[in-house]
Simulated assay, not measured.
Amino acid sequence: MVRITDVARHAGVSPSTVSYALSGKRPISEETRRRVEASIRALGYRPHAGARALASSKSNVLALAVPLRAGIHVPVVMQFAVSVVTTARAHDHDVLLLTREEGEEGLGRVADTALVDALIVMDVALDDPRLPLLRSLERPSVLIGFPAEPTGLTCVDLDFRAAGELCVEHLAGLGHRTVALVGSAPEVYVRRTAFAQRVVRGFTAAADRYRLSSSVHPCGSSPAAARATAERLLREQPALTGVVVHNEPVLEPLIDAFEQLGLRVPEDLSVTAICPRELAESLRVPVTSVALPSAEIGTRAVELLMGKLDGAPVAGSTLLPAQLTSRASTAPRRLA
């Protein structure tokens, strides 16, 4: 690793002179500045965050607030986080990951320091208590998720309502008349998490439009919860032939449970999902799905934030279109 002393030796100046050239705290001659800058380029020296902050009054650090609450599927969250970190590094920024469930107070403590220049906030609720603070901060922010009232905020996410609608439309087009949504864990709905609520609205609206018999079932993340949900569905909706799953951990256990209960996929039961493409493709029966574009969403969030930091106008709302890919888990409804 190249150090500031290496730059000083290469330029023939003292380390303090290099520091002054970086920070601008004291005047140095133009010739000396050019010599220091040439040495920095020649050696590939990268000032640490503290030096960059002195030079620009910025930390070059973004905060990513993703509270790891009950019902959160960590592997998917990490896909978002990796995308944010990778894109931020391409813009010469580091990322401070905030995983505690601190809410408004925790965000306020971070925003009141010089630790970060801007914030990305995940796990957004429809009536999220953090919104008044985010609207009042001088530091820019971007939400991955859409609250009920996004005015004055910058938001990006998949169009989850359209995703729920697309799954139902696909099943209706195959002739299915009784469908169910196996949704996120119950606590996700209790928190009124925006993406889960929007899927339910899309699912319900499309089912009503096609005059289907439908129901919504929150489900825990364990195989036992998947089995219990499958049993309940077959008990309460014996005519069920189509399922939409919006709960990544139970997708495979749920298919296994239905088949153990005597329903073959897709011959007797068609299954669709809203999940990462890699998961849908990897299962024993590849699942018809609306892909969750976590990498693209994370990238868009950082790019929006960079635009705001540069003072450029950015879109207040960015909804990525839902796209359904048909695979082996869906088929036309068998007529009795």
Rank of each mutant, 00 (worst) to 15 (best):
V7C: 09
G173V: 09
T204Y: 06
I28A: 00
K25F: 01
G106K: 00
R300L: 15
A273H: 03
A63F: 01
G242T: 15
I120Y: 05
L292C: 10
D310N: 15
V290T: 01
S214W: 12
A114T: 09
V116P: 06
S289C: 10
P27T: 12
T325A: 06
K308A: 14
L181R: 05
A8H: 08
L158A: 03
N247W: 05
R100T: 15
L96A: 12
L174K: 05
T288L: 04
G106D: 00
G316H: 15
L254G: 07
L304F: 11
L133C: 06
A55N: 06
S317M: 15
S39V: 11
L43Y: 10
D157R: 09
G145V: 06
E30F: 02
G262A: 10
V243Y: 09
Q79L: 15
E278V: 14
H246D: 09
P218L: 01
T113I: 07
A65N: 12
A172D: 07
G106V: 01
R35E: 07
L134H: 05
G316D: 15
P286I: 02
L283V: 10
L279E: 09
T17C: 10
P253Y: 13
S294L: 03
T17E: 05
F195P: 08
A55E: 01
S282Y: 05
F80S: 04
L133I: 01
R41S: 15
D268Q: 14
D123H: 09
M122T: 14
L292S: 07
V2W: 07
I120H: 03
V168H: 04
A49Q: 14
G12I: 07
A51K: 01
C219T: 04
A42L: 13
S14L: 10
L153C: 09
V271T: 09
V287S: 03
V84F: 02
V13W: 08
A224F: 01
A291V: 06
V85W: 00
E101V: 11
L251M: 10
E102L: 15
A280H: 04
A228P: 00
T272R: 07
G50F: 12
A273R: 01
R264C: 03
P15D: 08
T151S: 14
P238S: 11
E267H: 15
Q197R: 15
P286H: 04
C155R: 02
L174Y: 00
P132E: 10
S270M: 12
H91L: 11
G311T: 10
D127C: 06
H73D: 11
R69T: 13
R34T: 13
S19H: 08
L261P: 05
D256M: 13
A322R: 05
R334Y: 04
G24E: 07
V142T: 00
V290I: 06
S326M: 12
I297V: 13
L279R: 08
R327A: 02
L240Y: 07
V2C: 05
H217E: 12
S329D: 00
E303M: 02
L181G: 04
S326L: 14
T229E: 02
A206P: 04
A42G: 12
G242C: 13
S16D: 05
A111S: 11
D112V: 02
R198T: 06
L240W: 06
P75N: 08
R46H: 10
G103I: 06
V287F: 01
